[in-house]
């Protein structure tokens, strides 16, 4: 592996189906080293399946891939020591204590000076005070933290984190992202699947997957720019009554309520602007805003559903 230049992950035409249902379709993707790569998509879009193929838990039906310089199909044994995989479902032992779980994972990876490493990681992740508590009795957020600790223990080069922050409070999420950033600063690559838009925006680059198809890849700005969506925000009172009315206007493709504000999107900027200005009224405030990821993704999802 030539340090620094080759991508951490590079897959080509990766395909996987269960029965006759194609879950990942000819997916090609590159993730650079040290990058924080966000992986988004609706439920059942194949995110977990894709991540599992990367770490050798599932065999792709066709296509090829290189992960940390090794072939994901034939050399998964060489990949495994260098990745930290955190599965979507909590997959540590609920009947072992925090320390026992970490000790176990340390031994599985054969890390040197494991007792010390475990103590360090517990300190670093703030798990020390739960050391003797059974993992099953931790709260959801702390379970996630333990899972993250266990996949950082062996100092992997690549983190594959499958919805690491699902059900975690905002403070803990922020802590989590701080950790990921400091990891990235050390040159560790992270592929993180998430459903949160604010997290998507924190990623260096992101990909949007839908029913096995890769619909968008790039930085948050690139993704919004390439979507070609224009967005207006309307605010005022009784917005939900207005919502149905606006939906029917020519040029309006998407109306998303945000509290007392509506975000109205469309690809035809001119038509959209005309329609909205025609119904302008002193009760509402109309304002053109930058398109966000959420609008893009909802629009992508809608397009998929239509086709």
């Amino acid at each position: 592996m030539s340090e620094g230049f080759s991508p951490a992950i590079s897959v080509k035409d990766l395909t996987k189906s269960f029965g006759d249902k194609v879950v990942v379709k000819k997916l090609s993707l590159q993730v650079e080293q040290g990058e924080i790569f966000g992986f988004l998509g609706p439920n059942g879009s194949g995110k977990t399946t894709f991540i599992r193929m990367l770490c050798g838990l599932l065999r792709p039906d066709s296509g090829s891939g290189i992960c940390l310089g090794y072939n994901i199909v034939s050399e998964s044994a060489k990949i495994k020591p260098n990745i930290g995989y955190m599965s979507q479902k909590f997959s540590l032992y609920e009947d072992l204590s925090v320390r026992e779980n970490l000790n176990f994972m340390g031994r599985m990876y054969g890390i040197p000076r494991q007792r010390l490493a475990v103590a360090e990681i517990m300190e670093h992740m703030g798990l020390s005070r739960f050391a003797e508590q059974l993992a099953g009795t931790l709260s959801g957020g702390w379970k996630q933290r333990l899972a993250l600790a266990s996949c950082l223990l062996h100092k992997p080069k690549l983190l594959l984190l499958d919805e690491p922050t699902a059900g975690v409070d905002p403070k803990a999420r922020r802590d989590f992202w701080d950790d990921v950033y400091s990891m990235a600063a050390l040159g560790i690559t992270a592929l993180i699947s998430t459903h949160y838009m604010d997290e998507a925006e924190r990623c260096h680059r992101l990909a949007y997957l839908s029913y096995g198809n890769l619909l968008a890849v790039g930085t948050a700005d690139e993704v919004t720019a390439s979507s070609g969506l224009a967005t207006w925000s309307i605010s005022g009172k009784k917005m939900h009554e207005l919502s149905a009315q606006i939906k029917a206007l020519p040029g309006v493709e998407l109306v998303i309520p945000f509290g007392n504000t509506l975000h109205v999107c469309g690809h035809d900027e001119l038509l959209l602007s005309q329609s909205l200005h025609a119904m302008k009224n002193s009760e509402y405030r109309l304002e053109k805003i930058a398109t966000g990821l959420e609008e893009v993704f909802i629009s992508l999802m809608q397009d998929q559903g239509d086709s």
């Binding site: 770490c55 050798g56 044994a77 599965s87 479902k89 909590f90 997959s91 032992y93």
Partner: peptide, 10 residues
């Protein structure tokens, strides 16, 4: 679900 974890280790 702990099998998933075991299989992802070396």
């Amino acid at each position: 679900g702990t099998m998933e974890n075991l299989l992802s280790t070396p």
